[in-house]
């Protein structure tokens, strides 16, 4: 067995799934090949590390609450929380760029002047995620979300598209839209995010600098617009 042949069988070797004859050949090759010994060592380290990838522990009481909700024992009507297409109720702990939009649908005016609520800085030719947080007092079904992009950024996968519109449902509480943006050119621009429902619309502006460094307080500047 040579190095190329051994490399092709590396996973079977690690999983002890080689035929007996192959295993003998593999062991014989390994004994005289430091390069393949290193390969095996690295692959074993990787396998070990995979088992160390953490998960947050199950929240205390979650199992009991979830079963009670499923069986109706909690006396509440079933309602799916979060995970609406495109949105998550989760708040990522690693959020660095964030804009918060607070919506009060029962008091939503017909048209609200856009308010500049946040500034974000994006590196040139890099993709960064801007988390738009839509904070609603109550669930909004069938809302139309429109994102109008400035010329200095684009959404990866949608080259050249300046306006993106789709319908979605917002849960009561915080809904996060992780919006990936790629810096196209060193420039300033304004992203306009609008939520429309039943003819009522609310818009917010996010100032976007590409290729410039903002002060930390500016990067995290987020104001509730309501």
């Amino acid at each position: 067995m040579n190095c190329k042949q051994f490399e092709l069988r590396l996973d079977d070797y690690l999983d002890h799934e080689l035929f007996p004859g192959e295993a003998i050949d593999a062991d014989a090759h390994l004994k005289q090949c430091p390069a393949c010994q290193t390969r095996v060592e690295r692959a074993r380290t990787l396998q070990h590390m995979l088992k160390e990838i953490p998960t947050p522990p199950l929240r205390s009481g979650f199992a009991r609450e979830a079963i009670a909700r499923a069986t109706g024992s909690d006396g509440k009507k079933h309602q799916r929380r979060g995970f609406v297409a495109g949105f998550s109720t989760a708040i990522a702990a690693s959020v660095a760029l964030m804009a918060v939009i607070t919506l009060l649908p029962h008091s939503l005016p017909e048209q609200l002047a856009p308010v500049e609520i946040a500034q974000v800085a994006i590196s040139l030719e890099q993709t960064q995620t801007v988390n738009l947080v839509f904070n609603t007092a109550q669930a909004l079904d069938g809302a139309t979300l429109t994102i109008a992009l400035p010329a200095n950024v684009e959404v990866p996968g949608l080259p050249g598209q300046r306006t993106i519109t789709w319908q979605t449902n917002l849960q009561a509480g915080k809904n996060i839209l992780p919006l990936p943006l790629k810096g196209l050119r060193r420039d300033e621009g304004e992203l306009l995010a609008s939520i429309e429902q039943d003819g009522k619309i609310k818009s917010v502006r996010v100032h976007i600098s590409v290729g410039k460094t903002l002060q930390p307080q500016a990067r995290l500047h987020a104001l509730h617009s309501a």
Partner: peptide, 19 residues
């Protein structure tokens, strides 16, 4: 949906809270 949403794991939280 028109945007392919990222699936970046909440690694900081997992590491901070994990056993």
């Amino acid at each position: 949906s028109p945007i392919e949403f990222g699936q970046e794991h909440d690694i900081e939280a997992a590491t901070a809270n994990s056993n």
